[in-house]
Design a binder for these strands. Structure first.
Lengths: 142, 142
DNA sequence: TATAGAACCTGTAGTAACTATAGGTTCAAG
DNA sequence: CTTGAACCTATAGTTACTACAGGTTCTATA
């Protein structure tokens, strides 16, 4: 039977979150309010472990909390199709690609600045990096 | 002479920030407190435009506020060398590369999930993406 | 069974880097 | 001289947590 019970600490460990994060997810409605012991301690089931894993992994993939709420809605409510999830994943992949492109441009700019700055014993007044940062449209020089 | 004066709105426009951002930078000590008019409006000089441009561009390159404070310290205080700035830029470039690598892994994971999910009319119960997110160590499958 | 201390509880404040709002004052153009 | 744009301050909101304080419950050992 799958009626193993988990304390919040075990749940957290099991899914790689911190206890405070579980509290937080409960507060914002990502995780349901679990049953409690007499004394008020939360008692979780394996389904909670699965759900929290889903959330954590989605976060790792760069989904925002609001997006994860949408994903969980698909899962919680019946009558949804794989296509909706697929579409979200594709959108996410595109957003990630854009971030990568931005960072690539960044890196090139930084490396160029470093290359220009050959004589690192220069006084700060002659530093090409400082210079580059003071001039307009660094980003567009790239 | 370079004694052109700028209102906060002009300063903001000139350097691509919002007025509130200038207020904020002043509050946290990135920008100095400028002189004021009788009525209390801030009056900026060209040096402020340059400084704010430096800050904005550094932010665009992914430097954190605290790092920019360090960079500005180099510039504000005498007896600093180009090498210190160069070292920070190199560190920054490396950090950016790491972020790029992370995102690449992300993108691959997302794309693989999308590819596996061929039949988007499937019910959500059979969605390989949802499946992948529920299983452990998605990130390590990549 | 008594007790120590680990783990839990709630609620609030802090983080980064702004953005937005409210409610009031000053400036500049016509 | 009036109008309305731009400015002022102060506070709250944003995102996704993290960290604390001050108290309670659970559990393992003596």
């Amino acid at each position: 039977m799958n009626d193993v019970k988990y304390s919040i600490g075990q749940l957290a460990k099991e899914s790689g979150c911190k206890v405070e994060t579980v509290h937080y997810y409960e507060k914002i409605g990502l995780m349901p309010e679990p049953p409690r012991t007499e004394g008020g301690h939360r008692v979780f089931a394996f389904s909670h472990v699965k759900r929290l894993n889903f959330i954590r992994r989605s976060r790792e993939l760069g989904f925002k909390i609001e997006q994860i709420k949408d994903l969980l809605k698909f899962i919680d409510e019946p009558n949804h199709y794989c296509g909706e999830v697929r579409a979200m994943a594709m959108l996410q992949a595109r957003a990630v690609q854009e971030k990568i492109d931005d960072l690539q441009r960044l890196k090139v700019a930084l490396n160029e600045m470093v290359l220009k700055c050959k004589d690192s014993n220069n006084s700060i007044d002659d530093c090409p990096i400082v210079d580059a940062l003071f001039t307009k449209q660094v980003a567009e020089q790239i």
